[in-house]
């Protein structure tokens, strides 16, 4: 009886720990950051490349979303040298809702609005 109770308590603490770990990292950090950490070009630099091509929030978000779902060399904002070296990513496995959420977080993190002085 005492063993069983101890086992239940351990399970609860472990699950709580898992759920806490899950809350500290959002969908962007979980799904995007890990892979990009291995690349020499940061997510911030890539964001600026998107800005250079798409300009506004709506178009940048649409551009990213489209590329993540249909990653082709011709659609990438990165240079040919970068693509040839590191290749094209695989199509995203995130649902459209999750994708939108991740992109929204990405935009808020790197947007230029209200940052200039």
């Amino acid at each position: 009886m005492g063993k069983r109770l101890r086992g239940v308590l351990v399970t609860i603490v472990f699950l709580n720990g898992v759920s806490l770990w899950g809350e500290s990292e959002n969908i962007f950090e979980r799904n995007c950051v890990p892979c990009h950490q291995e690349l020499p070009t940061s997510l911030g630099e890539m964001f600026k490349s998107y800005l250079l091509v798409y300009s506004s929030e709506k178009f940048v978000k649409a551009g990213i979303k489209h590329y993540l779902r249909h990653p082709f060399k011709s659609l990438s904002v990165m240079s040919d040298l970068f693509i040839d070296t590191y290749g094209i990513k695989k199509p995203t496995h995130l649902t459209p809702k999750e994708l939108d959420e991740a992109i929204d977080i990405y935009w808020e993190k790197f947007k230029v609005f209200d940052k200039l002085k």
Partner: peptide, 20 residues
Amino acid sequence: PDRREYPRDPRFTSAIYDIE
């Protein structure tokens, strides 16, 4: 974002707008 100061010039002022 390391530099955030918008470029200024005594001869004119300016503003930047996106595609929308």
